[in-house]
Design a protein around this nucleic acid. Sequence first.
DNA 1: TATAATCCCTCTAGCGACTATAGATTCAAG
DNA 2: CTTGAATCTATAGTCGCTAGAGGGATTATA
Lengths: 136, 136
Amino acid sequence: MFSIGELSKRTGVKIPTIRYYEQMGLIEAPERSQGNQRRYSKDGMQRLSFIRHSRELGFSIGDIKGLLELSQHPEKPCHDAHNMAARRLEDVRARIAKLQRLERELKRISDCDADTVAHCAVIETLADHNLCETEH
Amino acid sequence: MFSIGELSKRTGVKIPTIRYYEQMGLIEAPERSQGNQRRYSKDGMQRLSFIRHSRELGFSIGDIKGLLELSQHPEKPCHDAHNMAARRLEDVRARIAKLQRLERELKRISDCDADTVAHCAVIETLADHNLCETEH
DNA sequence: TATAATCCCTCTAGCGACTATAGATTCAAG
DNA sequence: CTTGAATCTATAGTCGCTAGAGGGATTATA
Ligand SMILES: [Zn+2]
Ligand SMILES: [Zn+2]
Ligand SMILES: [Zn+2]
Ligand SMILES: [Zn+2]
């Protein structure tokens, strides 16, 4: 049985975030001490670690609810989990592609060697997308 | 002189977003028709295009305020603009790096060929970061 | 056992950059 | 002059937290 502070230290999830997850229905309300303070079990800690890791991998709160549900039912098929992971992967790849286009433009405009705004590549480019090399 | 709807079509910025930018002080309050509707000039349109392009390149509202200010003063030095662009570039690169680590993990777990949750690589990995190949 | 330091409680509001809705008014075309 | 589309303001919701106020609980030390 640990307090919310101990749980926080062990999982690396901040205290208000733990309470927020409880409110969002990701973790069930734990037992309370006589003085109404939360007391967590090892089970609760594992669940929170699962949530943290899922967040780090970019899953949304909604997805995590589904994944937690699944994880409680080992006999169920796992294609739902695969689909979520695949969608995440697609999304991550799209974001990488977009950021790489941005990187290219930002690198280009950062190369400005003018001194004043009048001939600055940064300002000129922001005013006119036609000066860009890619779509974005 | 165009209405907010026309301005929206020409710049690709949604109507509520234009009003939001006005509230945030990015664009000055335009003239009004007799019936209190906004009427924009070509100048207003260029300013909004500048804002849109800056947002597409990932600059924050705060940064854009500064960039707009600068763009009104061609005689000023442009190193502030360079600094902002450089910071953006760094940020974009860091985000790309992070997303690439995520991509790797997501690709790995998406390769699960189990049928049930009991042996699913997705669920197992989410429960235990030690199964990951990288930090993230 | 008293007291102080630390921890924890609930509730509310704020972040950034929008987006959505409701209910009222104005505009432009026929 | 009527109708339907566009616009107005004001307010609340989105996501995933984070911060603060004003209290109560727990724990360590004296
Ligand atoms: Zn320059
Ligand atoms: Zn561009
Ligand atoms: Zn699987
Ligand atoms: Zn991991």
